[in-house]
Simulated assay, not measured.
Amino acid sequence: MHIHNISKENSILNTFISEIRNKEIQKDSMRFRRNIERIGEILGYEMSKVLSYKTKDVATPLGTAQINLPINDIVLCSVLRAGVPLHNGLLNYFDTAENAFISAYRHHKHSPESFEIIVEYLACPNLENKTLILADPMLATGQSMVATFEALKPFGKPKEIHLISVIGAQEGIDFVNKHFDNNVHLWVATIDDTLNEKGYIVPGLGDAGDLAFGEKLQQ
């Protein structure tokens, strides 16, 4: 798997990452959502550099310009609910993409430290020979990314696969790396070293879904 850690080079991306981590700034849920969206835009821009392009003629009022334009048939799939702002950011740049949505959550059977990933909802177009972008803002253990991809397999075999995350834990990245082919790309805004005993990224930022949309009821 090709791993692209965008934070290795200094850019305005660092400002948005600092704000989503900051425990005071992240209290503003609207700003949190917008920062995730902007990070999605930056990750989408970086990802666009490896897509396939074809030179096309574009008529202007004064003549014709030749421009290299992307030709990939893209399907953008985000993991609900935390993935919605990230999805919107990517869709701002890939505005002709088809869209898919999938739910995935941690089901704790016996203790807070052990869980399985449950997928209950999935809406997806045909993926055969297309470019799949699978977006999940927090790549913690990596189990959600793998489980959602497994759930997408009945919809066809993509030609290309790009995974998009805002913050990834090294352990989760290693787990995902074992389950995806060598030609898959992972685009991540920044990488943290540690998971705590409950499988949350440290220092991370907390629960991205709660910060974006409010705390959920626990069943």
Rank of each mutant, 00 (worst) to 15 (best):
residue 12 I to V: 13
residue 188 V to W: 05
residue 2 H to T: 03
residue 181 D to H: 12
residue 30 M to T: 13
residue 179 H to I: 00
residue 38 R to Y: 10
residue 48 S to K: 07
residue 29 S to C: 02
residue 144 S to H: 01
residue 22 N to D: 15
residue 5 N to S: 06
residue 11 S to W: 03
residue 80 L to W: 10
residue 111 S to I: 04
residue 164 I to G: 02
residue 217 L to H: 14
residue 98 E to N: 11
residue 39 I to D: 07
residue 58 V to Q: 11
residue 17 I to N: 00
residue 189 A to C: 04
residue 137 P to Q: 09
residue 135 A to G: 03
residue 76 L to D: 01
residue 171 E to T: 12
residue 123 A to P: 05
residue 106 R to F: 03
residue 138 M to A: 01
residue 72 N to K: 09
residue 148 T to C: 15
residue 199 G to I: 05
residue 20 I to M: 02
residue 47 M to K: 03
residue 126 N to H: 04
residue 217 L to M: 05
residue 20 I to V: 09
residue 112 P to E: 13
residue 21 R to G: 05
residue 80 L to G: 11
residue 176 V to E: 11
residue 162 H to Y: 14
residue 148 T to A: 08
residue 171 E to Y: 00
residue 112 P to Q: 11
residue 199 G to Q: 02
residue 54 K to A: 13
residue 210 D to I: 02
residue 196 N to L: 06
residue 75 V to M: 04
residue 149 F to E: 00
residue 203 P to Y: 04
residue 131 T to G: 01
residue 13 L to K: 09
residue 53 Y to T: 01
residue 60 T to C: 04
residue 167 I to N: 02
residue 150 E to D: 13
residue 196 N to G: 07
residue 166 V to Q: 07
residue 208 A to C: 11
residue 24 E to Y: 09
residue 202 V to K: 12
residue 213 F to Q: 06
residue 10 N to D: 13
residue 42 I to G: 06
residue 53 Y to D: 06
residue 5 N to P: 01
residue 6 I to G: 00
residue 148 T to E: 06
residue 109 K to D: 15
residue 138 M to Q: 03
residue 76 L to R: 07
residue 123 A to L: 08
residue 65 A to G: 11
residue 207 D to S: 01
residue 58 V to P: 11
residue 149 F to I: 08
residue 12 I to Y: 13
residue 97 A to P: 09
residue 181 D to A: 15
residue 198 K to Y: 15
residue 88 N to C: 09
residue 36 I to C: 11
residue 143 Q to D: 14
residue 162 H to N: 09
residue 150 E to I: 03
residue 14 N to A: 13
residue 30 M to W: 05
residue 34 R to Y: 09
residue 53 Y to M: 04
residue 101 F to A: 00
residue 3 I to C: 07
residue 40 G to V: 03
residue 48 S to L: 14
residue 70 P to G: 10
residue 62 L to C: 04
residue 154 P to N: 09
residue 183 N to V: 04
residue 34 R to H: 01
residue 147 A to K: 15
residue 114 S to K: 14
residue 9 E to D: 08
residue 122 L to K: 13
residue 10 N to E: 14
residue 116 E to Y: 10
residue 63 G to C: 10
residue 76 L to Q: 01
residue 68 N to G: 11
residue 53 Y to S: 00
residue 22 N to C: 05
